[in-house]
Design a protein around this nucleic acid. Structure first.
Length: 715
RNA sequence: GCGCGAUUAGCUCAGUGGUAGAGCGUCGUCUUGACGUGACGAAGGCCGUAGGCUCAAUCCCUACAUCGCGCACCA
């Protein structure tokens, strides 16, 4: 017996050497797997953002995916798990810009486009290295030879190709309209990147001037300098006589001209039932303005400052300008009411900036635009809906299918252009009146490429196939797409999962994956959300150093079903560290008490008691094998734990002490074999969950294969 | 406002139309040769509330409450 079994299990000493063995074996790469591995099983790792380090959520993700991957590899599947990182455009650029500003006092404009990108790239590279080492620490059996980055050369080709195809089909278009402008990030963002924050704010009810008979309500008086109409409901008796009339006034120093119009969207019950229409600073008002041909008048700029009006207003930030306008309204005796209301303020997900609706010329993906697909008319929205409706994709837990459909139903065109520098540049070039969209730059002089870059989710949307070599028709693409499972957090169902379905359905004519497994949020032991600002951040690497990766994995898995949030505290992790040690001691007992025998796979002379033991053991294994295929890892982990400790160790091994010191040679040998057989089976079924300790023990029990590629028990 | 989920032991969660389960924690006993990171044992639950279906409900149905989530509204 190896001396190390005389001491308690030491995860820190074991894990690195086991990692090395796995890497040297090359088995993480399916091309190197033994002959029996035929049918494929593939997963893409949701690429972590290069903005930072891994957190508990990443650890959970890696644990679940590695369980699926190891299980399927043992089942004899040709298993591919592709790792990578995400350039996370806005988030990464914002982070690096902030650092440069802090350390050097320079803005991105001081550095220029090229230099900034160079800096961000350097940061991304460093961050990528950290992430890679963290993924390895968790024991994730990803194929590093196929690692990808959402912003590398190959993925850039995929992005340009996808853009061009959609452009040619008329699905990508350039349009001028009110978009979500983030003054903090200095870029537009999509509807999905908005986070609504509930706040108390004031609703002001007032008249534009003494001469205008209609009273309106707003939470944003400072935008009213840009009003060009008052809208009322067509059936509202209070305002019938005014419809069609026009008024002039000077509002907070700004001359305005208002036309009273009737529109169905106005709610009679809200406020005064009359709505001041600000065409370019509200998406709803923009629509109204379009229907009625109203003039457009911008009064707020990209820095959220008011561009016009009297001295106390002009050049001021919106909040300050609002107070000034209200003060003016009071002075003029125009303010009728001021009340507190609950409001949801739109903020940018990445920067926290308050969204300012602004009119902009941007690139969009038209989700309702009809195009020819296999000779039939289709829309992107329709494709996204059909993929799930037809059960080509199933989502776990299935209640998220409803949430998905709900989202699709409300979906508007996707704004994909961003005014930042870090990202895939829009593959469109301009020369005078000419426009060229292409995979490559046009030849000839004088072409200027579009300054904008693409929403990071555009490139992420291609991930299941861009990582496999698309647009080239590679072997990998043929072998591994559609991927088997997509495992990710519930929070990016729309951002990512839906966009992948869109891109794959449109570009490849097939779903990107068969099953979506969604995990919830990892919270601290009090149930609070883990965040740096709350100071309750848990670093998975600290836990691994203290308790071992196996213990961390188990603690994240047990009792946590798909879609539900979990709570993790050190106590739980510690419990599974103890379990790893228990397995260690079980092994020591077996090694010492079976010294004179060896494992005999074809042994058949079982004693009556041992036949009983095998019967209930095999029942358990067939049960958990079924549950593994149903993604019930949270149950399986607990069952194996329970069987190993409270059945195998506490009952079977305890009872064996007497049997093994008995005189009946046949009964003794039967018991030795049942211990050896059961021990091996436990190691096998536990391996996907606790890969390190099981591999280490396996190495001691068996000089042959790595447990990594042993076959899952066939019962 | 619409929709979804949760509510079971001190805590975290399984579970089934017929006497309630696990882990952790708590308490007690044990220096037994695999392991004190342990063993054995114990305490602890009107299974959110109120109705209904049923011979029988923690489980099915209805309403309500509380917590959480998604969407919409946000003039």
């Amino acid at each position: 017996m190896n001396e190390k079994f005389l001491k308690p299990y030491n995860s820190a000493e074991t894990e690195d050497s086991i990692s090395k063995k796995w890497e040297e074996s090359g088995y993480f790469n399916p091309d190197n797997l033994p002959e029996r591995h035929k049918e494929s099983f593939s997963i893409v790792l949701p690429p972590p953002n290069v903005t930072g380090v891994l957190h508990m959520g990443s650890a959970l993700m890696l644990a679940i995916e590695d369980i699926m991957v190891r299980h399927n590899r043992m089942k004899g599947k040709k298993t591919l798990w592709i790792p990578g990182t995400d350039h996370a455009a806005i988030a990464t650029q914002a982070k690096v810009e902030k650092e440069i500003q802090k350390k050097e006092g320079k803005s991105r404009h001081d550095l220029g486009r090229e230099e900034l990108i160079r800096r961000v790239d350097a940061f991304a590279k460093e961050s990528r290295d950290t992430i890679v080492s963290q993924i390895k620490k968790m024991g994730a059996s990803v194929d590093w030879s196929r690692e990808a980055f959402t912003l590398d050369e190959k993925r850039n080709l995929a992005v340009r190709t996808a853009f061009k195809r959609m452009y040619d089909d008329g699905l990508i278009y350039r349009g001028y309209r009110v978009v979500n402008w983030d003054p903090k990030g200095q870029t537009t963002i999509s509807d999905d990147e908005i986070v609504y924050e509930p706040r108390r704010s004031k609703l002001y009810t007032f008249k534009y001037s003494k001469d205008i008979p209609i009273t309106i309500s707003t939470t944003r008086p400072e935008t009213k300098l840009g009003d060009t109409a008052i809208a009322v409901h067509p059936d509202d008796p209070r305002y019938q006589e005014y419809i069609g009339k026009e008024y002039d006034a000077v509002f907070a120093g700004e001359p305005i001209h208002l036309k009273v119009i009737a529109d169905q969207v106005v709610e009679k019950e809200f406020g005064t039932g009359a709505l001041g229409v600000t065409p370019v600073h509200s998406a709803v008002d923009w629509e109204i303005a379009q229907r009625h041909g109203l003039p457009l008048k911008q009064v707020i700029d990209e820095y959220a400052k008011v561009m016009t009006g009297m001295e106390t207003v002009k050049g001021k930030k919106t909040a300050e300008a609002r107070d000034a306008v209200v003060a003016w309204l009071k002075e003029e005796g125009l303010l009728e009411k001021e009340e507190e209301i609950d409001q949801n303020v739109a903020t940018a997900e990445r920067t926290g900036g308050i969204i300012e609706p602004l009119p902009k010329l941007q690139w969009f993906i038209g989700v309702n635009k009809e195009f020819e697909k296999d000779g039939k008319s289709a829309t992107l929205k329709g494709l996204m809906k059909k993929a799930v409706e037809s059960k080509s994709i199933s989502i776990l837990p299935d209640r998220f299918e409803k949430i998905y459909f709900n989202w699709i139903g409300n979906l508007l065109d996707w704004c994909i252009s961003r005014q930042i520098w870090y990202g895939h540049r829009v593959p469109v070039w301009y020369r005078n009146e000419e426009i060229h969209c292409g995979v490559e730059a046009p030849s000839g002089e004088g072409w200027i490429q579009d300054e904008d870059t693409l929403d990071t989710w555009f490139s992420s949307g291609l991930w299941t196939f861009s990582t496999l070599g698309w647009p080239e028709q590679t072997e990998d693409l043929k072998n591994y797409h559609p991927t088997s499972v997509l495992e990710t957090g519930t929070d990016i169902l729309f951002f990512w999962v839906a966009r992948m379905i869109l891109m794959s359905s449109y570009l490849l004519g097939e779903v990107p994956f068969r099953t979506v497994y969604l995990h919830g949020l990892v919270r601290d032991s009090q149930g609070k959300k883990i965040s740096k600002s709350l100071g309750n951040n848990i670093d998975p690497l600290d836990l691994i150093a203290k308790y071992g990766a196996d213990a961390v994995r188990m603690s994240l898995i047990v009792g946590v079903g798909p879609g539900s949030d979990s709570k993790v505290g050190e106590d739980k992790v510690k419990a599974y560290k103890n379990f790893a040690n228990k397995l260690w001691n079980i092994t020591r007992f077996i090694l010492t008490s079976t010294e004179n025998s060896s494992y005999d796979p074809s042994f058949a002379e079982w004693s009556e008691a041992d036949a009983e033991i095998m019967k209930s053991r095999d029942l358990l294994i067939s049960e958990i094998t079924k549950e593994m295929d149903e993604y019930k890892f949270y149950l399986v982990a607990e069952k194996i734990y329970h069987y190993s400790w409270h059945e195998f160790a506490d009952k079977i091994i305890e009872e064996s002490k007497a049997v093994l010191s008995g005189t009946d040679v046949k009964v003794r040998e039967s018991r030795v074999q049942v211990l050896l057989h059961t021990h091996r089976l436990i190691l096998k079924v536990l391996h996907p969950f606790m890969p390190f300790v099981t591999e280490e023990i396996w190495g001691e029990m068996d000089s042959g294969n790595l447990l990594l590629v042993e076959s899952w028990p066939q019962i």
